[in-house]
Design a protein around this nucleic acid. Structure first.
Lengths: 330, 330
DNA sequence: TTGTACGCGTTATCAT
DNA sequence: ATGATAACGCGTACAA
């Protein structure tokens, strides 16, 4: 593997001349430069990143820490991040697992975007204190070196619950995410806020973990005690899909007996019959904005926290509560 | 950010002593070592990867090049790779896009696993010639620095087609993947091999591109000209699911009018009603084996190409051709 | 154009 | 037996 020294030898010049030529500096004559470039190509020269990183104190790589690589969910997000890095000269690498955290403190990456609940906030703060630049998508973390790009979870949950209430539903199941989840906590908080203004609503909370399986399980429990039409708000689509799939194996009809709404608008949600009502937001934009914010942080620019807005997507998985229920005596 | 020099100053020793202590060398007394370690922790010392990589000529990071981050497909694969790297001291980073190819020649990674048709074989061979270690999952590439871990595509396609033929089907649609796809080519070749032994089978080839949308489109075309029960082999599940979803909106019933089989056994496939017949293989094992092979290549060990075996998963999306068709005169 | 110091950790060599 | 000195890996950038 040829290095800058080999080229210098071949060209009969000093290594600094080679470096200048390779970097397009005007300090080298066009002919010398051309000769050097030709030799570099011939020797298949590629700069050694370690040496360059060492000198420049930067790698031009940013990392994304994900809790896992599953779900069509991440695809769009990462795609958006790449979009935000286009022509910035930065590359993106995705990592998962505690092992790879070392990339940050060891400075193999110039900054990181974090979407991994299992990455503790203490650890993140430690890195931020050491000067590392971070963008977090899944927690509230205030530090000059940390920027937040968060979903407007509360607005989303409000939209969902109010939609159900408007349609006349008076019995609401909510299937939560895992205990540690920031998104789940925020969504649940908003649900409770809305419900505090509607004390007549019967509210049943069920614990899930954002997986399809936990949604199916919740569906099973609801089906077992089914007595009257009800609304179900699964705090993410994954669980809503799990419940939907379970319910199709029963007599309970989604959209008639159970009004089901999710959160995230993942790809499958538009394919269910009837279509799953859900809360939508642009994953592309989320990713794009995150990487952009990180670049600014790295550049030392001032950045304010960003918020990703959400919208309600109506779907026939949610039906109107039958008016008979209103007229029935309690 | 503290470096080894700062620690040496604090401890009143030389930097080499610090280095020895940090690396657990027996050349330093236990007390000195303990003192140094304490100071290192206090100063929150973390080695600079660039400096270490420069000296050691390795990064202990391997890269995976993917064509995109979509599809639940990659999750298990990457999970498997991580498994194969456990306790090897290596970390895994996933990349996508031509931009990030630089990580390999610039030696930011010690080797790479490639599952990206858009990464040209010429480029890969160039890197291999330069001494970089590669494992390819999506092409036939022979080079001492390249190892192949390929699916047994041909066996899978044979299983699928023979299954359909055994059930009496005499009309077969095959929906292919994109032209450049190695997997698609291999599967198609095997299909034709089997069919050459069954000249009486009516064979219709349709071009797809491995996306759900292209499967749906193929389904539309089949539905428009539907006249008699037929079998369809979509060369991946993604397309089969797309077709399945489209067909549910028509009068054509999967498993009765159209016998549908896919390839990959992705997660959704087990949830369709009726269950999608498909070809299964362990994505975990594929990933695990790939990373293991790469580690061996990097270690300079001799490795032979590996093959991932496949099995047939029967499902009610495939039904027996009605015997009436046999007794009918031609 | 060129010489050279620098970034930082590793390790062989030399001195105590 | 301990520990210090210095060379090394490679590219960058300033001074000469």
């Amino acid at each position: 593997m040829a290095n800058i020294k080999d080229i210098a030898k071949q060209a009969g010049v000093s290594i600094s001349t080679v470096s200048y030529a390779l970097n397009g500096s005007p300090k080298v004559t066009a002919e010398t430069s051309a000769r050097i470039l030709a030799i570099a190509k011939e020797l298949q020269y590629t700069p050694n990143a370690a040496a360059r990183n060492l000198k420049k104190q930067e790698t031009k790589v940013i990392g994304v820490f994900l809790s896992d690589f599953n779900g069509a969910f991440y695809g769009e997000l990462l795609q958006g991040m790449k979009e935000g890095l286009k022509q910035s000269g930065y590359d993106l690498v995705a990592c998962s697992g505690k092992q790879s955290h070392r990339l940050l403190p060891q400075r193999m990456i110039d900054g990181a975007i974090v979407l991994d609940e299992s990455f503790s906030s203490e650890e993140l703060l430690k890195y931020a204190d050491l000067g590392h630049k971070l963008v977090v998508l899944d927690r509230d973390l205030n530090h000059p070196n940390v920027n937040q790009v968060l979903l407007d979870n509360k607005a989303g949950a409000r939209l969902a619950v109010e939609y159900l209430i408007e349609l006349g539903h008076r019995k609401l199941y909510v299937v939560t995410g895992p205990k540690g989840s920031f998104d789940s906590r925020q969504r649940l908080q908003a649900v409770k806020q809305v419900l505090s203004r509607h004390p007549h609503i019967q509210y049943i909370e069920m614990e899930g973990d954002f997986t399809k399986a936990s949604g199916a399980l919740a569906g099973l429990q609801i089906a077992q005690h089914f007595s009257e039409p009800a609304a179900v708000f699964c705090l993410n689509d994954e669980m809503a899909i799990g419940m939907y799939e379970y319910l199709t194996t029963t007599n309970i009809r989604v959209g008639r007996d159970i009004s089901l709404i999710g959160f995230d608008n993942i790809e499958i949600s538009q394919y269910t019959q009837p279509r799953l009502a859900t809360i939508d937001y642009s994953k592309q934009k989320w990713g794009w904005l995150s990487s952009e914010q990180l670049l600014k942080l790295i550049a030392g620019e001032y950045v304010e926290h960003e918020r990703i807005y959400v919208t309600l997507i109506k779907g026939d998985s949610v039906g109107a509560a039958l008016s008979s229920h209103f007229t029935e005596p309690f």
